[in-house]
């Protein structure tokens, strides 16, 4: 069973078609890059897959659950992190972790153990009792990601997770993504950094609500005779 399977998934807002019959599959443990210009329909598609938005037509299964009828199950089995980090600034690091663990119904012992492991991995033991607002942006992002996969979801959705982060932290963030993918977590990620598109196993590029290209970065570059993903993207977006 594939973690994400969609067939002709469509969302209309009035007469405007935000997402136009997109069909794709994402494989287990894959890092799937979801690219597109502003307004191409990425966010809408992502919201439908997370069970936040009801599609107009088409089908989609996420973690084996139908997004129409089993949105609750979908939410239980995914992690989500957006650019505007999902942490509470006025709570301490520890309190944030405990809160999210609690939301996903982890037991107290479990939360405690995971908190320790997580802080150790991020090298943030000393900051456990600091308010999140006092952390540098890069740390917040890394923490937010770790919290998003705290309940061991099989899929994690990342909406522009690295926007505005310094280059070193950006790489460290990708290390976390790689590591999660290596453990079998499926990663669905959007980004505006084209070099990050290269880190993905496969990349889809949306233009005006449709998926115009979907393949490995290498294949895409070959297909478009391009030097970099940046070129591929420009050719597609300009050629509309």
């Amino acid at each position: 069973m594939q973690p994400i399977v969609t067939n002709a998934l469509t969302k209309k807002f009035g007469s405007f078609i935000a997402t136009n019959a997109i069909t794709f599959e994402v494989k287990q443990g894959e890092i799937f890059g979801f690219l597109g210009a502003n307004g191409a329909g990425k966010t809408t598609a992502m919201r439908m897959l997370c069970g936040l938005l009801r599609p107009s037509s088409g089908t989609a299964k996420v973690a084996g659950y139908d997004v129409y009828t089993q949105a609750d199950k979908v939410k239980q089995n995914i992690g989500y992190m957006s650019q505007r980090f999902s942490l509470y600034e006025d709570l301490k690091v520890k309190e944030n972790i405990r809160f999210y663990g609690g939301i996903y119904g982890l037991r107290n012992g479990e939360i405690k153990e995971k908190t320790e492991r997580l802080l150790q991995k991020l090298g943030m033991e000393a900051e456990a009792d600091q308010l999140v607002s006092a952390l540098p942006l890069g740390w917040k992002q890394k923490l937010a990601f770790s919290v998003a996969i705290l309940h061991d979801p099989s899929i994690v959705f990342l909406d522009e997770p690295t926007g505005g982060v310094d280059p070193v932290t950006r790489r460290q963030f990708w290390d976390l993504i790689y590591e999660a993918a290596n453990r079998g977590v499926t990663v669905f990620v959007t980004t505006h950094y084209m070099d990050e598109a290269e880190y993905c196993d496969r990349v889809s590029i949306m233009v005006d609500g449709r998926i115009q290209a979907l393949d490995t970065p290498r294949q895409l570059k070959a297909q478009f005779g391009a030097e970099s993903m940046d070129d591929v993207f420009l050719q597609l977006a300009r050629g509309k």
Binding site: A37, N38, A40, E160, G163, H192, F233, L234, A237
Partner: peptide
């Protein structure tokens, strides 16, 4: 250009 897609950025 923050948050703007690569085409528009260019």
């Amino acid at each position: 250009t923050t948050g703007v897609d690569p085409v528009s950025r260019k």
